[in-house]
Nucleic acid binder design. Sequence first.
DNA 1: GTGTTTGCAAAGTGTTTGCAATTTA
DNA 2: TAAATTGCAAACACTTTGCAAACAC
Lengths: 138, 138
Amino acid sequence: MKTIRPFTRAIDRLSDAGLRPTRQRVALARLLFEDGDRHISAEQLHREATEAGVKVSLATVYNSLNQFTIAGLLREVAVEAGRSYFDTNTTQHHHFFNDDTGELQDIPGDSVVLSALPAAPENTVIDGVDVIVHIRNK
Amino acid sequence: MKTIRPFTRAIDRLSDAGLRPTRQRVALARLLFEDGDRHISAEQLHREATEAGVKVSLATVYNSLNQFTIAGLLREVAVEAGRSYFDTNTTQHHHFFNDDTGELQDIPGDSVVLSALPAAPENTVIDGVDVIVHIRNK
DNA sequence: GTGTTTGCAAAGTGTTTGCAATTTA
DNA sequence: TAAATTGCAAACACTTTGCAAACAC
């Protein structure tokens, strides 16, 4: 009864990524990865953790999000200056960003198609393509 | 035959946009608009102004950039959390962002083509599409 | 003159860091 | 026990704001 499956999965995910599965990191990983694709900021995650009764400092949330990102568990999405979002879906895909509400969401399937990609400038290589479709409430 | 963009003085540009052409705003508009397309942050513009002998405070640079943006003279481009870039080219186009150097540049011509656009979610309308091609040095 | 704009410094965000205490392996 | 991690507060980078003085019309 002590061995909860999802708990174990979070631990394995962290271990596999070379991150020590501490109490805080496991709790954050569960919040992040147990409910499918998520787009979340550090503040939001910290609030969720606190509401779930997990004692973790905001600094640790920031540090963990950055470590998870470096480890390839998360992807950082820049939508507007001053706020960072982290996306649990690390595969190549694109986003709607609601400028009214600040909400970020995936663009489903392949409903965005880039039919031509530019050549990278001299001495550079393409590292990734972000498409942000800005939307606002009707 | 080549389309020549009509030369508009900084003063007229500001007046037409409903902005009082003060000494500071005129100086900033000159720096921004007299040398073709530019991608610049508030700090950079402030430094340029200072180097050009224009006395203007950083707060006024920020305020002016925001006013210019609201007036449609500039377009703000979000590339990474924590830094705002302003683009003097307000037409629909896309960008390379060099993650190594922090440099932002236009993607030339039609070398990026979005061949499909998603439908906006319920009760929202599409406001614009940003394509950022992240590059890094070889 | 009257309303607008500026500059300064202070305040506000969001994020990172130094370091002692704690936890993990 | 040694090394890694945490929490706190302070530091940070960037941006906005309040208000008195300066300016544009």
